[in-house]
């Protein structure tokens, strides 16, 4: 009885409750406001951006602003380029990482551990270190302003292999692989019919992480994609912002419509997104 009393005394404190809600509400508000602001400016004429008091309501320039975007940059082309690159890279990373991850988790070959440690070490090297020589290589290959410059180097991922190896090691019992081998299953068939169906969750997680990473990547595309027709959406949107005369309504319109697809997908699959993007960290 005494314990219960003490517990309940500790619980309902109205001030704690108020404080927690205040904190969370301001956190949510500050997180969401820039999205709303983006929409407000995207639907208003240019001068509204610096109005006093600040504009807080959507205007009527939604269509005009977006038309201006289409006249300034190849918006849909850039969106398509981003889609193409992100999809190709993701499919390739999933396939090659799971294949290599399977080899590291279940196959026996010489130097396996050394090679795996090597992969772990490379994950810690900042990518900027090799930026200039990579650019030189792409130039020599004639891939400047060619989407292959983004796709081919992105096809493999050290993190992907690490992730897949850990997952396969836990998710697939050695006995299963051994049994399949004794039954005369070829390695490729073991991979395809036994491993792949059992690691679908790992595919989903790695897929989201990779897709988001490639879609939002900026520095490398900026360096290698000179021609407007191959720009990804990030490079194209940045171009809007860099014009000498800034039309904020147009800039925000481009930014807003480039952001909407991912935000919608995020809202639909929010639980899965949040889990995936943070899971790579916690493990």
């Amino acid at each position: 009885m005494i314990i219960k009393k003490k517990l309940s005394k500790n619980k309902p404190n109205i001030f704690t409750k108020l404080f927690l809600y205040l904190m969370l509400f301001s956190g949510a508000l500050l997180s969401l406001f820039p999205f709303y602001w983006m929409f407000v400016i995207a639907t208003n004429p240019n001068h509204v951006v610096n109005r006093v008091p600040p504009a807080m309501l959507p205007g009527e320039h939604l269509v005009i602003n977006f038309k201006n975007v289409l006249e300034t940059i190849p918006f849909f082309g850039a969106l398509y380029n981003s889609f193409l690159v992100s999809t190709t890279v993701t499919v390739s990373v999933l396939f090659l990482s799971s294949l290599a991850g399977y080899a590291f988790a279940k196959l026996r070959f010489k130097g396996k551990n050394v090679l795996f440690v090597f992969i772990l070490v490379t994950m810690m090297i900042p990518s900027q270190l090799g930026l200039i020589p990579s650019y030189v290589i792409i130039t020599k290959l004639g891939w400047i302003s060619d989407l292959r410059a983004l796709i081919v180097p992105g096809m493999v991922s050290a993190f992907g292999i690490f992730w897949m190896r850990q997952y396969i090691k836990e998710a697939i019992p050695d006995e299963l692989v051994e049994a399949a081998k004794i039954d005369g299953c070829s390695q490729l068939r073991i991979y395809w019919t036994i491993v792949v169906p059992l690691i679908l969750p790992a595919f989903a997680t790695l897929g989201i992480i990779t897709y988001m990473g490639v879609w939002n990547d900026f520095m490398w595309p900026l360096v290698v994609l000179k021609d407007e027709s191959v720009h990804t959406i990030q490079v194209a949107v940045r171009l809007l912002n860099d014009a000498y005369v800034r039309d904020y309504g147009m800039i925000m319109s481009g930014t807003f419509w480039a952001t909407v697809p991912l935000v919608v997908i995020f809202l639909v699959f929010n639980k899965f997104f949040i889990e995936s993007l943070t899971k790579g960290a916690v493990k």
Binding site: F35, N216, R238, L262
Partner: peptide, 16 residues
């Protein structure tokens, strides 16, 4: 709401 900013691209964030 608090996680949503993380799915926007850095370019968009910088422009906004």
């Amino acid at each position: 709401s608090i996680f949503m900013p993380n799915v926007t691209s850095i370019v968009a964030v910088a422009i906004v």
